[in-house]
C-alpha cells in the first residue's frame, strides 16, 4: 500500500516535471525581431497584427495555414505592437494599451495609459515602458515631442515616472538592457542610459543621419531611414562605432 502511494507521488512528480519541461521548452521557435513601429509580431505560436482599429490574433500551430482565432477592437488610432513576454503593449495616438495573453495566446485587455494626442511607439522591459510622443503635421494638434518613461510593474495601473524633452521628432526606439536608442528623424539619434528611469541620461547624440526606426541587440544597432540602413557597434557604450551605411544599389 505504501509502495503504491509512493509510486503515485513519484508519478505525479514526474508528470509535473514533464509538464513544466514541455512548457519551458514550448518552442518560442526561431522568431525574428522587428522594430518599434511594427504592426506584426509573433510570440510563440501566435501572430498578432494591428489592422485598422483592431488587434487580430492568428494561430500558427499549422504554420502554412494561419487561422484567425481572435479579433478585438482596441482604439481607432492604434499604430504599433510591442511583444513583452506574456503581455502585448500597443501604442496609439492617444495612449498605450496593455494586454495579457491567455494560455492559447488570446489577448485580454488590462489597462491603458492615456496621454496627449501624439504619435507614439513603445518599447519596454518587465518594469518600465518607454514611449515617444511626436507632433508632426497631421498628427493631431500637439506641440509635444518627448520621451515618457512609465512604471509598468503594476500592469493594471501604469504610471508616468518622468517625461524628457530633449528631442525634436522622437520616432522609433529600441531597448537593450539599460541602453535606449531613440530615432529623431533628421536630428539623428540618441543613445541613453536608462538604468535609473527617474534620471535618464543622454550618453550620445549622433547627428548626420535621418532615421525613423531601430533594432538593438547584442551590441549591434540597426537603424533605418527613408533611403538608407545604418549599423553601429555599441558593445562599448562609451564609444559607439559606425560599422556601415547601406544604400541598396541599382
Amino acid at each position: 500500500m505504501k509502495t503504491m502511494r509512493n509510486n503515485a507521488i513519484c508519478f505525479v512528480i514526474v508528470l509535473m516535471s514533464i509538464l513544466s519541461c514541455s512548457k519551458d521548452a514550448s518552442p518560442a521557435g526561431n522568431v525574428g525581431q522587428g522594430g518599434s513601429l511594427a504592426r506584426f509580431s509573433i510570440i510563440g505560436n501566435n501572430l498578432y497584427v494591428i489592422s485598422g482599429p483592431n488587434l487580430k490574433t492568428f494561430s500558427l500551430t499549422d504554420p502554412l495555414n494561419p487561422a484567425l482565432m481572435d479579433e478585438q477592437r482596441v482604439a481607432f488610432d492604434i499604430e504599433t505592437l510591442f511583444p513583452l513576454g506574456e503581455f502585448l503593449l500597443i501604442g496609439g495616438q492617444s495612449g498605450m494599451h496593455i494586454f495579457s495573453r491567455d494560455a492559447a495566446g488570446r489577448p485580454e485587455y488590462i489597462s491603458a495609459y492615456q496621454h496627449v494626442q501624439a504619435c507614439d511607439p513603445v518599447v519596454a522591459n518587465d518594469t518600465v515602458a518607454f514611449v515617444t510622443l511626436r507632433s508632426v503635421e497631421g498628427c493631431r494638434f500637439t506641440e509635444t515631442n518627448q520621451l515618457e518613461v512609465l512604471d509598468i510593474r503594476d500592469k493594471r495601473n501604469p504610471q508616468l515616472i518622468k517625461a524628457y524633452t530633449d528631442f525634436e521628432n522622437p520616432a522609433g526606439l529600441a531597448l537593450d538592457g539599460n541602453l535606449l536608442f531613440i530615432c529623431d528623424l533628421e536630428n539623428g539619434f540618441f543613445m541613453l542610459d536608462v538604468s535609473k528611469p527617474s534620471d535618464v541620461k543622454i550618453l550620445h547624440h549622433i547627428k548626420g543621419v535621418n532615421v525613423h526606426d531601430a533594432i538593438a541587440r547584442n551590441g549591434l544597432l540597426l537603424l533605418v531611414g527613408p533611403k538608407k540602413l545604418y549599423q553601429y557597434d555599441y558593445s562599448n557604450p562609451a564609444a559607439p562605432r559606425q560599422l556601415s551605411t547601406l544604400v541598396v544599389p541599382d
Binding site: G32, L222, P226, L229, P249, D250
Partner: peptide, 20 residues
Amino acid sequence: SPRTVTSLERIYVFQQYIFA
C-alpha cells in the same frame, strides 16, 4: 535581383538577414 531604394519603412531581422 536587388532594387534601388525609394522609400524604406519597417525593418525586420531574422538570423543573419535584414528584411527592409
